[in-house]
Amino acid sequence: MNLFAQAVQWILDPLNYVGVNAIPLRVFEHLAFTLVTLVIASAIAIPIGFFIGHTGRGRGLAVSVAGAFRAIPTLGLLTLVALWIGIGLGAPFVALTILAIPPILAGAYTGFEAIDRRTVDAARAVGMSEGQIVRGVEVPLGLPLLIGGIRSAALQVVATATLAAYIADIGLGRYLFTGLKTRDHAEMLGGSILVILLALALEGIFATIQRFVVPRGVISSRSKVVRVRSSRARPMVNSAVEKGTQ
């Protein structure tokens, strides 16, 4: 427990709030890096996911690609890309974007797939164009699952961004690696605690967003749906599956 006291002391030490290695700066780096990665991965994955979800085309390919990526170790990808494009911010950036795409893609198309086909057919029957169906029906109804996908991607990116400090001078992971190298347990542990707090805070924020984006109509009809359905709903292994590896 003494080590934890030292770690807390390290976190509160005023010396760690100045210079290029200041804690607020590292937290900002870590967060900014995570956000930019997520935005770029989303820009690539969401349109493709919506296309797959709406047309049903390319689903098999997306499932197997996402499955294959789950087995690829993040550290291997990071180091390999670093050897290819050199040390610097580029390598972790590329590697993390690649890692963030599969969960977001899965969130986007499973969100569309989970919608009752009759709802989509009804929208078509009242004269909505395909574009209107996507924008007005499928996107709002699929949004909670899409946010869920972005949530798993965010968790994975925050975790892997820590690991990225192994190949680049970026984020909170620096404390872990300098601490490891110099056997400075307070710094190593303090840095770890900061990363864990950051990850838990992000998890909380995403959980809240996910709750808020459920359309009002879905919430009001939910109690009825539960009673009509059989108690043996489809097994939800996917929730764990989409999380994948860190």
């Binding site: 968790l155 770890s192 864990i196």
Partner: peptide, 18 residues
Amino acid sequence: VGLLYAIPSLPLFIVLPV
């Protein structure tokens, strides 16, 4: 368990021994 899963692996490997 949801919170546990949110903890990044490398920090856990360092905090756990303590």
